[in-house]
């Protein structure tokens, strides 16, 4: 009987009391825009395209962000430079559809696409929420400073010959008779 009362009635009363006491605690609300809130570095806000430590575009137009996007708001087209680097000919994000889920960032094999702690993206015209590569591409490395995909990938580009990537042996001389 006692436990019944304790678990039902008293627990409700205790709840009421504890909630009532909250009236004396300070509100957590940050009065934006009078006060700018602190944005955590891993906040999932405005999407950017970053550059690798050498200052080259990180995006290799692999399309994985586009396919991971649950609202299909990323569209891009692969192009290739003379020396074999892949890059997006255009890269478009329709932020009026974006739900800032961060799947694109998780899918990105080159750390190119990143979500940043900026949420102030409202526009009066929806059309202005369609961002092209020029709007997305920043000059820095974003959150991940050291990663350079082409230093790891086997594909040959200018300034990195075959066999010069991470953990690669020099190219095989096919005509050699040595074992």
């Amino acid at each position: 009987m006692y436990t019944l009362i304790k678990d039902t009635l008293l627990s409700q009363v205790r709840t009421l009391w504890m909630v009532f006491l909250k009236i004396f605690t300070k509100a957590d609300t940050v009065e934006y825009p009078d006060v700018q809130p602190y944005m955590f570095p891993r906040w999932r806000g405005r999407i950017i395209l970053s550059r690798d430590p050498d200052g080259e575009e990180r995006c290799v137009a692999c399309n994985l962000c586009a396919v991971a996007c649950p609202v299909d708001c990323i569209a891009l087209q692969k192009a290739e430079t003379e020396d074999g680097r892949w890059y997006p000919e255009f890269f478009r994000i329709n932020f009026s559809r974006c739900i800032m889920c961060g799947f694109c960032e998780e899918a990105c094999p080159t750390n190119a696409i990143q979500l940043t702690p900026d949420f102030e993206m409202a526009e009066y015209a929806r059309q202005d929420m369609v961002w092209e590569k020029e709007d997305l591409l920043i000059d820095g490395t974003g959150k991940y400073h050291d990663y350079n995909y082409y230093r790891v990938a086997g594909k040959q580009i200018a300034g990195k010959d075959k066999g010069e990537a991470l953990n690669e042996a020099p190219p095989v001389d096919v005509r050699s008779l040595l074992p």
């Binding site: 009532f20 909250k22 009236i23 957590d28 609300t29």
Partner: peptide
């Protein structure tokens, strides 16, 4: 009142 009890404004 609700907001006070929920630590809001």
């Amino acid at each position: 009142l609700l907001s006070f009890w929920q630590e809001r404004l």
